[in-house]
Design a protein around this nucleic acid. Sequence first.
DNA 1: TTTAATTTTTGACAAAGATCAAAAACAAAA
DNA 2: TTTTGTTTTTGATCTTTGTCAAAAATTAAA
Lengths: 190, 190
Amino acid sequence: MNVMEHLLSHIKNYYTLSDEAQQALFDCFTKVTAFKNELLITEGSICRELYFLEQGALRGFYNVDGKEITHWFGFENDFVTSFHSFITGKPAVENIQLIENSTLWSISKNALTALFNQYHEVERLVRIVYERYYIRLEERYVNAQFKTAKELYENLLKQSPHILERVPLGYVASYLGISQETLSRIRGRL
Amino acid sequence: MNVMEHLLSHIKNYYTLSDEAQQALFDCFTKVTAFKNELLITEGSICRELYFLEQGALRGFYNVDGKEITHWFGFENDFVTSFHSFITGKPAVENIQLIENSTLWSISKNALTALFNQYHEVERLVRIVYERYYIRLEERYVNAQFKTAKELYENLLKQSPHILERVPLGYVASYLGISQETLSRIRGRL
DNA sequence: TTTAATTTTTGACAAAGATCAAAAACAAAA
DNA sequence: TTTTGTTTTTGATCTTTGTCAAAAATTAAA
């Protein structure tokens, strides 16, 4: 399967585009390679690109009182960006950093906006992507609200074991909203 | 200002529709009145309606181990529904309950889908609403992740004092992810 | 009003998790 | 291999918040 097919077959999980719109969409994407620990997006800068992560892993994090708070991870087939900055056009408040060497596809906000005007169906696709991302975030939020540290870990182990396999524990702890020591202890007595 | 103008002027905060699309959209809305403590949506049932809250207040909550976990509030000019159920068509896992007697406007998912097909611009409007709702949720999520109970309360007091004025403390505590007693103590020593 | 019901606050104690510091384990490079 | 750097674990202690129970305050109803 070539790269175009890869991206397009994933998009079909959301909505099936006409051949013409598919082609137009694909023409707007540029390949990007980025390396472990590199920052894809830095707080303070305006993020005008949406990325599709073909291969690799990365994280979004905030700097709060000198500490890094990881709040999400991205893996294969995720759309990633600093949504706040991308949507509002304001400077990003978060950083996005590579956890592994990765291959991404990038589309600019301008190009995407132009596509919306040309192809209703592309806007529909994006509307559906937002719907799904919204409920995914909602789920995580509610989960975090009333679960204990142990339950959060067990949940993660069950739902997204790949995260634990590919991501340093320190990041995972902060992602779960607990200290690294607590996470380590939970792992110890399971 | 009559009711149609109220709804439409609010929608303009997101995207300005043509007169024709405005009219078509408005024709799909039905007025709903609901009373304090009533359940607008009950877990287990499928929610096929999206509501615009014209006047009043309500909350979304989950039942977990016999406890009610409030995870959001809705006030004037909010679009509300069980998004998970509305989007996926699966049974709702949450309940939506009136906190005050309220006036809402309801549109069915079928009607909205039909409008999407007829008017690209309506789908654009909804895409933009989702964008905004997504980043609003993201903000709340990150906030909850690294703030202490006291900071969360002070934040709420500053950002959304209306919540504290209109909502019983027990609901607010659960919304902040802390116990009612802790919230009461925080308020005491400020 | 007086009574009843509900909501909020207070107190005492328990538990979960955070923090600081150091040791151990692991990985990468020389 | 040894050395060096990084990540993870362990131990001791401190804080924050939760829980249970009862009192006080507030609101609604009779």
